[in-house]
């Protein structure tokens, strides 16, 4: 019985990985065919990917927006998590409000943000994309840092104050270093959210602001070539590196 259950689990886990595993050899195809087995391997489509202006611009935009989102969401989110830990009766309400972006379906968030950003001229700008992605990423930073603050000993604050440290000094030399792994993990989470985000970008990004997911969608709809498999592989590899980094940081706690 137990063996059967495990065999079944292995089959399902393979199913989870299968499409990703299948796409990898296809990205090395030497011709336009996207069928297995791939007979001649080549880097042709990888060269195409890096030579193509659309994909290059999309990669650049994805990195730019991801990094900016990471900085904005991480700084605001960390500050907010500390604020929530310091408490007051408002803390619960604040936490709930900050987690709202998780439960709003992304198409609805995309539409709502579009309606406001269109009025303010933020549609078709990278700044608009950064603001929108930051809101979506904020809850994950807050929750990550907040979770790590639960183990934080408030005695340390009193000890620092009794030794004459000003609040800013306490924050810089006690709170932030202790939180560093959680902040790092939150930052990676924020970057990943932005890096993967498509729906809001669909509403508020013009062709000049296409990110990698947006460009992938465009190329899936227009002209299917192994370059799409290349993009899928590259994005997956980037995601896996981030996941590894995230795991290392979380273990450090």
């Amino acid at each position: 019985m137990k063996t059967l259950l495990r065999l079944y689990a292995i089959v399902v886990l393979l199913f989870l990985l299968a499409p990703l595993i299948v796409v990898l050899p296809l990205s090395f195809s030497a011709n336009e065919m996207m069928s297995l087995p791939v007979r001649d391997m080549s880097w042709r489509w990888y060269r195409d990917f890096f030579a193509d202006d659309h994909w290059r611009m999309a990669s650049r935009n994805s990195l730019l927006v991801g990094l900016a989102t990471m900085v904005l969401a991480t700084s605001l989110g960390t500050l907010a998590a500390i604020g929530i830990r310091l408490g007051g009766r408002q803390a619960r309400v604040v936490l709930t409000l900050l987690c709202l972006p998780i439960v709003v379906p992304s198409v609805i968030a995309g539409l709502a943000i579009y309606l406001v950003f269109a009025q303010l001229g933020l549609v078709n700008t990278l700044a608009g994309l950064v603001l929108a992605h930051s809101v979506l990423a904020l809850p994950y930073v807050v929750l990550t840092v907040h979770a790590s603050l639960r183990d934080f000993d408030p005695q340390l604050l009193r000890a620092a104050a009794s030794l004459g440290a000003k609040p800013a000094m306490t924050l810089r030399s006690i709170v932030l270093p202790l939180l560093a792994p959680a902040i790092g993990a939150g930052a990676i989470f924020a970057f990943t959210i932005s890096f993967d985000e498509l729906i809001v970008a669909l509403f508020i990004a013009g062709p000049e602001q296409f990110t990698l997911p947006r460009q992938m969608l465009a190329s899936a709809r227009e002209y299917l070539s192994p370059t799409l498999a290349v993009a899928a592989v590259l994005v997956s590899v980037a995601s896996l590196l981030l996941l590894g980094l995230y795991a290392v940081l979380q273990r450090g706690r």
Partner: peptide, 26 residues
């Protein structure tokens, strides 16, 4: 640090962002 009851004020920038880019849009 600040007295505990006002600590949540540190969340104001984040709340402002959520207000501007999610609550106002909704």
């Amino acid at each position: 640090m600040r007295p505990p009851s006002r600590g949540w004020l540190l969340s104001l920038p984040a709340l402002a962002l959520v207000g501007f880019a999610l609550l106002l849009p909704l």
